[in-house]
Design a protein around this nucleic acid. Structure first.
Lengths: 334, 334
DNA sequence: ATTATCACCGCACACGTGTGTGTTCCCTCA
DNA sequence: TGAGGGAACACACACGTGTGCGGTGATAAT
């Protein structure tokens, strides 16, 4: 059984009110009594109940972090950033997985309501169209990270997919490629379109005619398998370089290339997106667009804190960063 | 402002007691009233307060999941398993990082006490010697996953490091290797020793004399860098195969080999431990010992549930599984 | 000596929910 | 017709903490 302020009060021979005030340093309690009670609390191993405090103060100092699955290699760093800032500010994080299952998503939202979280962060979900109605009912701030729907009524932090994809494509053009393929993923509708737009913008700016055959949208599938299927871009359409929707897809393509004796980057250059951990470990190490995952998590939580303090915030669109490794090579090395 | 049972009571013209009972289907409330109130609750968007319920019932249906950092590639799957079982059982998970910082570890433990979590799961920490005293004070069940200290008073789930390392070493011996190196990590004292024991047991069983020079314990460092440093085993001591403490270390070694034009597996065979995601993506794909991470998380949470139900539980030592990929090769291919 | 001032502390209630113990009303049966 | 009983609900309190307000005693001011 846990020690309460009443227990301390009984031992100290005062009311629980006095104990409460002494522990919080209230000025109307004499210095001596305060010291005595604090010492007593220490001795008795008193730990205040956040539950009772929450009931009274109507804040829980908890936030809900909703992910599809924490096993997605993109997410751990984001969560790390969120947790870091949250902990420093005295908040704790409920981690909840939705698994892209509509029923579980509803359960998650309902659970967060029951738990009276002070705010919610949602990553890479199709929130907005699916269970946006549910979310609007909730009275707490919500921040979306890389969401796949336009929810204007909510706050968001996202990477600039257009700029990132353009940067990657420009890199390929710069080193001499002209037949450049794009591998998209239909499971991420919004950012897929944006990355495609960035790819096209770079081509257009360079005066390279667009060829619809070079845009490959595999049927919804495992990200890795989508990359494997994309080999046809090289075999059928003779592209010399490919921009993949993300690193997993790029690694899938990379793996298939090895199996088919296609040398990367000599025969085919490959660029990914995200810069997950594994990107630097594959061989050849993957050229990619880095998303500042840790910072995105930190920013999301900072935004939450601002919202809770009634400060005004504005949505953030963060630039991607080109990380040149060894999976891309000038087509005509000089 | 959230709807409470009192609000419903006012609208329905009954006491809040009746509302409470109606919503829980108490038999002493008439069927008609029950139906009416439940319908009213639905309409008014009532969501019960877990905070108030916790205060009354003295259970929070939350558990604390303590990790060093969620960015460790070993952990996401474990957390996934925990969260999955927890959610199905109506529990929510607080994710807390300790960052191997003693001060933060204390903060974390104190926070979990304040939050009145029903149980705690700790992964791969030096718990027991460091802040074990703190943990013993807590009255809730604690389960450790792959802990690095012997805390006999606590419950644990761990992979069989001895068996796993023996399995890996036997594999190398079986394909013809006799000069086999071992790369350990001093940052994980307990499992490091166990894996070393497994390695030695396999050598002994095969009648291969032990050579202290082949056991390499790099100074505490980044796991990846430890792998890089281990190249000396090959350069100085002519080993033909190396068992690395974990996959990150193995990948570090792999990367350095590529840089030094050492062909893997032709010149050097490498075995890792853990089977993290990246292991299958590197080239050559890494032969390793798989830890059933998802299942370990599930088992940990199931054990928690059993403990909360006063069932007796026993510690689990799970076998590792040899995953043969392409980083190991017979020394004399036939 | 009476009142004002002040330091210090306790009473009572609130937060939202759940439960033991009444309490009321109606019906039944001797 | 009165007692007994049961159905249906309300009262009051508890969980642990925090706070407005009022009270007590001592000292200072008039």
């Amino acid at each position: 059984m846990q020690v309460t302020i009443k227990d301390i009060a009984k031992v100290a021979g005062v009311s629980h009110t006095t104990v409460s005030r002494a522990l919080r340093g209230h000025p109307s309690i004499s210095a001596e009594t305060t010291r005595h009670i604090q010492q007593l609390a220490e001795q008795m191993g008193y730990v205040p109940s956040a539950v009772a405090q929450s009931l009274h103060s109507r804040q829980t100092f908890t936030i809900g972090m909703v992910v599809t699955t924490i096993a997605d290699p993109f997410l751990p760093q984001v969560v790390e950033g969120v947790e870091k800032v949250a902990q420093a500010a005295g908040y704790s994080v409920f981690l909840m997985s939705s698994h892209n299952d509509p029923e579980q998503e509803l359960t998650v939202v309902e659970t967060l309501q029951r738990r009276r979280v002070d705010a919610i962060i949602v990553t890479a979900s199709r929130v907005g169209s699916l269970y946006g109605d549910q979310l609007e009912r909730i009275q707490v701030p919500i921040v979306l990270i890389n969401n796949q729907e336009n929810g204007e009524f909510l706050h968001s932090i996202a990477v600039d997919d257009v700029q990132g994809a353009r940067l990657a494509t420009e890199h390929l053009i710069e080193v001499g490629h002209r037949r450049i393929g794009f591998v998209g993923l239909l499971t991420r509708p919004k950012s897929n379109v944006h990355r495609l737009l960035g790819y096209q913008a770079a081509l257009e700016k360079a005066g390279i005619p667009q060829d619809p055959d070079l845009i490959f949208l595999p049927p919804p599938n495992d990200d890795f398998q989508c990359g494997e299927l994309a080999l046809s871009l090289h075999l059928k359409h003779q592209v010399t370089a490919v921009l993949c929707y993300n690193d997993i897809t790029a690694i899938g393509l990379l793996t298939t290339c090895r199996r088919h004796q296609i040398a990367v980057p000599q025969d085919l250059s490959i660029v990914g997106f995200d810069d997950i951990e594994a990107a630097q470990y594959v061989s050849p190490p993957l050229t990619t667009i880095r998303q500042p995952r840790l910072r995105m998590g930190e920013l999301a939580m900072r935004m939450i804190l601002d919202l809770l303090n009634k400060k005004s915030v504005r949505d953030q669109l963060l630039p991607g960063e080109l990380i040149v490794r060894e999976s891309t090579l000038p087509i005509y090395p000089n």
